[in-house]
């Protein structure tokens, strides 16, 4: 089915876009939380390398996982306790605030809303809008309540 088809990844195009995005993130990291530029630069370079490694795995591994899953896995594995250079990598990425990394992305997202999406929002009407709020709230609350119950059962 369509969700399993493997999307094509153009490595050089991803590398170029990521370069622009990394600069935007570095600016955000400097003007927002006020982190030092040089430390932020090294931190962004480390994150850049993790992303490219994840993309390479998504492109060339024999089985399919979404690229974001591979990127996450690379980030996890290289920072596991006991991995070579683990302390250095963690120290560098700590110079980048996690929340600022979403600021440029959301600006692209706002600019990318297409005309047909506006049409869908208009024609779906208020009932779908109301249901959507309950869908998001229900998913969040459902997960939070179950996690809370299991944590209390564990006594953790």
């Amino acid at each position: 089915m369509s969700a399993i088809t493997r999307p094509h990844i153009d490595m050089s195009e991803h590398a170029a876009v990521l370069f622009v995005v990394s600069i935007l993130c570095l600016v955000a990291n400097t003007v927002g939380p006020g982190n030092p530029v040089v430390a932020g630069l090294i931190g962004m370079a480390v994150l850049y390398a993790i992303v490219m490694a994840g993309l390479a795995l998504a492109k060339w591994m024999p089985f399919y996982l979404p690229s974001v899953a591979w990127i996450s896995i690379v980030g996890i594995v290289i920072t596991l306790p006991g991995m070579p250079g683990q302390e250095w990598i963690v120290a560098q990425t700590e110079a980048v605030n996690f929340l600022i990394l979403a600021t440029p992305c959301l600006a692209y997202a706002g600019l990318a809303i297409a005309r047909n999406e506006i049409e869908i929002a208009k024609t779906s009407g208020w009932r779908i809008a109301l249901v959507a709020v309950f869908v998001l709230a229900g998913t969040y609350l459902g997960s939070a309540v179950i996690a809370h119950l299991v944590l209390s059962l564990q006594g953790a």
Partner: peptide
């Protein structure tokens, strides 16, 4: 505007990488 759509998923990747580097030490 059309060209911005594929940029969203790429722009979120450093964020996902940063989350990964927070999970590792807290395994």
């Amino acid at each position: 505007v059309k060209a911005a759509t594929p940029l969203i998923v790429i722009a979120i990747m450093p964020f996902i990488a940063k989350f990964g580097t927070t999970i590792g030490p807290a395994i």
